[in-house]
Design a protein around this nucleic acid. Sequence first.
DNA 1: CCCCCCCC
Length: 869
Amino acid sequence: MVNENQINKILCPNSSSILNEFQVVPFTNKPAQLLVGDMYSQDTSVGPHMLYYQHQSPLEAGCTSKKQKTSVNIHDVFQQKASNKGKAICVTENYGANFQIAKYQEAEDVNKGKSILEDNIDEVVRRHNTQTSNKALNKRKSLCEMESYGVGFEIPYYEEQEDLRRKSIPENKRKRPTTQTEASMSINHKGLSSLYIDIGDCDWTCEHCNAAFWYGERLKRSTQQRVRYSRCCAEGKVHLPEEIEPPETGAREYQLPSTDILGAIVFEDGPNTQTDYDVIIHKKGVGPQRISKLHSSYMSLQFPLLFVHGEPGYTTKLTLRYSMELAPIEYLKPGHRDKMIEVKVYRAWTARDPPDRTEKGYRAILLDRQGDAIQANIDATDIYHFKPMLIPGTAYRISNFLYVPTDNWQQTLHNKTSLLFNRLFTKLQSIPAESFPNHYFSFVSYNQLPNKLWDPRDKGKKPYPVLTDYIGCYITAGEPRDIGNPNRNVSRMRKVEIQNLNRNVIELTLWDELADKFEKNEIETLEKPIIIAVSSCRVSKFQNRDLQLQSTPATYYYINPKIPQLNEYIQQYKQLYEENPPLSVTRYRLPDIEQEKNKNRFPLAVLLTQTPETYRGVRFTCEGTIMQLNTNRDWYYKACNQCNVKPTCYDNVYECKEHGIIPAPSYRYNFRATITDNTATGQFTFFTPKADEFVGVDCARLASSAENRGPRQFPDELHAIVGKKHTFQFHYTPTSRQGSVEFIVDEIFEIEKTSNKIEGQSSGTQHIQATKPTAIMEPLEETITEAQHSEEIASPTASCTTIQSTSTTDILSVPTELIPITKEMATPPIAYTGMQTRSKTDMTSDASRKIPKRQLFTDEASDSKKKKA
DNA sequence: CCCCCCCC
């Protein structure tokens, strides 16, 4: 078959030693399908033997289980090859092969003493004779197990072969034609050594690509019915190029290349192997040329006869077949190793346990075209590798990932399985991102938020609730500020208010980068209403009262997110706000008392039309006159000394639900008055202790002295407050509803002369009507804007919630003489927008009907700035 | 391996 005079050179990396008289012949008429990287040699006198490269698996370092190893494909092997890690050539087939190779004289330098090739024949024979055949077999086996990750073929052993033959396995249909068999047999029996072990013929083929194999090369998981090989095409996963028909048969069938030297490359094993040698080819008529080891033609140089057409063999263009099944996220199941996903990176973040700044890993939410989502986890050691790739908006085909149970806490998706990516084996291939959905949300409505609270009592019993996505209308945002011990962990924090279509407001706390990067100014230049969607928030409760949202490291926020419902939402909010625009309020205490006194100053006429739930905890101010006391209800109550809650009373025995029998309950004010600010009148409740200060007499003293007259008999001291004019600070009674709005007084300020002056300009006398709106609005404009720009500080906690809930008695006929709204009122206060549209609950005076429509959602900030300028 | 958080 091969010209016996042919000389094969084996170029050794370190020594350039040459083994001569070593012949390489093709064993197959489908040469392109032989596994690239294997060298098949045949000595004409003995028979076929195989030389294998020992590939150091690229997975070796990261492998934790054998299963992973089997998922490697040829591509990996040669990527590893490209990085020039150590490889070795070893003779794995049988001792016969050793003899034959060793028998050849090395023409020049000896091959540095590492290779089995060095053994001289006497030594090998001696060893063979002294070892038991089992030992020999074991050695071969161990060599083979080293040989490659997961391919795991077993070395044939002639007894086994004999055994197989005895059993006379039915002819496998994948057996190659007898002619070839005969051909090799004829060689086999020529000059057979007594030590020669017959491993059979290379007459088995891969069911996928038809590459030729020895039986012994089969995968361990082969069965008698199905003999499987993976070294060729990784069981069909690697797409090998179309075969080219071999040259015409005849005299030139095995025509030698037109050179008398054949080159081959031999690698040594071990960490010290040098592989940074030059590969130089010298073409006919052209000078020497250095080529890269990655050059696709270099491979064919190693197998000059196997690539009879000069096919490139291995190239970096080899692609995986889709037999690595492209699976929707929905169908991923832990344990599947042959799945590939095409996904868009939707969100990505560094995993942390705030306030600890340690980077615990990297996370991403991936979306597929079907609209499903899955989280990908990356260990901290691999952050640097994946962070530059997992950019939201990019898309990849991803294979070779593992499955892990989804984190129990800070769980972003309902999916119980997450993916684990590893820099050593997970493959990401960039693909176009157009065909993927824009967003993935699982919004929770305001009413469902309590279900998402985490209760410490559930620890260990219930899983932590999945983090919450929420959508609503952006109302306001504060400025970022520092939180925490400056010597240790300082966090950044910013509050954002979100309102839903029922006008419920929820406060979102953005932390750290999110707080700093929130582009408040840019957002507020957008046309209103502005829709904001936030993902993966924690739901918490403040003071056992207000639900809040907290950002987590996984949180993203989206302004006017491109979701199908966006326009619908915008229209709904638009409609809502046309009826009754939201007030722009400052929710926190201001450092300056003067600012506090003017904070959130809106006409009572406006406040009465609002939805109280929207402004829970918000303190408003007004300059108002006490018109009347509500004498239809008690002016004080007896309270538990510890909690100020009204106790039950049976037979003059007072009992607090919480604190039991109360021998001597305390007396506390709880009376109502009507206050007007000249735009409307409202019901205001006064409680101890503010009321004591205001009335000037302790409730206890007043009540005990008046007790015989009862709590419905209002003492003169109380009547004395009627007609007084003050700046009141107040909040909505939590139980009040739109349409029957009430307030609770927090602070009562004296009206200073200075502020009187400003007001005096327009409305000299207080109590009567038609204050020129500008008179109200001018100072408002300033204070509100100041308030917005000043840093928020803590608001105090309202402590009278429980008491308030008892005060839902009937209301004394309210003085209904409403202050007519003048035309000028049509110019709305700067601090809010769009109030000119009548709401259904608005009072229907002729004047109010005439109020012209003003453009909705104008930018109040820039408006006010203009006026200031 | 577990903890499962930071303001008002």
